[in-house]
Design a protein around this nucleic acid. Sequence first.
RNA 1: UGCCUGGUGGUGUAAUGGUAGCACAGCAGACUCUGACUCUGCUUGUCUAGGUUCGAGCCCUAGCCGGGCAGCCA
Length: 590
Amino acid sequence: MSDLPAPSLPSDFVRDIVASDISNGRTPQIVTRFPPEPNGYLHLGHAKSICLNCGIALENQGRCNLRFDDTNPVKEDTEFVQSITADIRWLIGDWADGILGEKPVGALPSAQTVNRIDDFIAQPAAPGTSPVEPFFASDYFEQLYVYGEKLIEKGRAFVCDLTAAETDTYRGSPTEPGRESPHRNRSIAENRDLFRRMRAGEFPDGARTLRAKIDMASPNVWLRDPLLYRIRHVAHHHTGASWCIYPLYDFAHCISDYLEGVTHSICTLEFVVHRPLYDWMLESLELPRARPHQYEFAKLNLAYTLFSKRRLMRLVQENHVQGWDDPRLPTLAGLRRRGVPAVAVREFAYRIGITKFDSLTEAAVFEGVIRDDLNTRAERRLGVLNPLKIVLTNLAADEIYDCEATNHPKDEGLGNRPVRLTREVYIEADDFAEIPSPKFRRLKPGGSVRLKYGCIVTYENVVKDEAENLVEVHCTADLTTRRGQPNSNQKVKGTIHWVSAVDAVEAEIRLYDRLFTVPEPDSEDDFTTVLNPDSLLTVQAKVEPVLAEAPPGTCYQFERLGYFTLDAKESSPARPVFNRTITLRDTWAK
RNA sequence: UGCCUGGUGGUGUAAUGGUAGCACAGCAGACUCUGACUCUGCUUGUCUAGGUUCGAGCCCUAGCCGGGCAGCCA
């Protein structure tokens, strides 16, 4: 568990609305939803939304439905359903998993009568039900179709025969009104007949659409008789070949929310212009239960990364990274593999807040929450990334001193472990300077330094090859400065990390850095031109032997270096692979 | 420039007509068997111009600047 301070309850304009809706009795029970389209992987931006929706549900003893918004069969795939579901479980595990709304496998909305009006409702699974699965908008295709006919009956929808290009032309532009479709005034009977035949598969793709009848002169282009259904003779990942007409977002989303009893439908700012349509649709249908309402917040922008689905897709497809779970990606799968704890992602979502202001969050905020959490929990180990051999000349080759290293400086409960001091050890090459800068307080000619958990060593001389390259450094060890020895409290300016040359295990370490060299790669003409060529550096390191047996996914702090997580995919005891999750803060490097 | 939105230190946010606060970053110092952590201190802000008011970041008017919208995507 994390020792992060229990966050005070978040407060923002959405939560203010929820609180007021509760206090004035509009929504006694709070239901939110997270509605991903299964056509990509979840990323940090989605995490912001999940934490908002789940957080609100959690704080109000409500529910947050996971619903796949899968109304476009040509783009969607079950691979994404699987990954998205797994990522959400990871993100909210031990926090909000209790309020996640899912349904019994295969369950469909049930018909009911409310105030003598036919109605449908999609209920979540009762607690303890097994097996369960997320909700799917595609489970509502039948109900959606019924509502489509209902709109026709009310004279608020019509079948249009315009081609896609014609529809575009007729729509006009933001500054010019559109023109009404020549098919706008078909009779209800003809519309009904045509819509049924659309469903029956009588027409080819694109031949006809179902459209709402609103206002072709509206200044809001989304109100200019928007499309409700299109014809697509393709199989759907969830409904198979059952349908050849598929509803569009503006029609499906609001009704899906209604069917699930959603009270607060929270989305990002680009949907503001769709809100009048959301409300128009539900009002037109004259539904018997309370209607959901849409609220919008600003999506996340994080410096030195990007979230656009298409661009993330391109990074993967063009092999700029190695898959959706590449640790350099801001995908939840990538972050998890990199070693970022879910609780840090949640804390990040909390710290950045929720507003309608289009902001750019500094990378330091995200890095900060990761360090905060890992610092409190990660056990300490010693590892040397760029080894330099030190020979302790006053020790014999077979001399071994057992030293005790503490696993965590602030948490004694995590215990100790043995490390062995031997005649030859490796230290970080950076921790020795033949010509040191003035404030350098590591090993240097004429100086002494402490080997952490070991003893103080004093410089003797350097050994070089014929080409004047540094081969090794000779020192003498003062064994009386070890723990438990009389001079253990002796002070030296510097303390450095090290590993015994006898015990050290080879490990591959992947040093990750930001993927892009500019704060806003998304605003670049071609974001591939600003990829950081050094976003991944692989080194062969010398690490403590206990690290070879570490469980995959465990994160350790390599003292004075950073946090490293055993790669869950490619590591093995015979060949450990560590991903650098994040460096330690380094005020010296500046 | 049609419609919709939004502008508070370097960054992200709070203050809902009554002392502009918090976090991150930065700087300085203390502590340190991690140049980490922790602790202390400091610098820096209400887009502009008018108006209402005893009092305006908040309300009103005008302007300036930013973001979004014209998929049979979501």
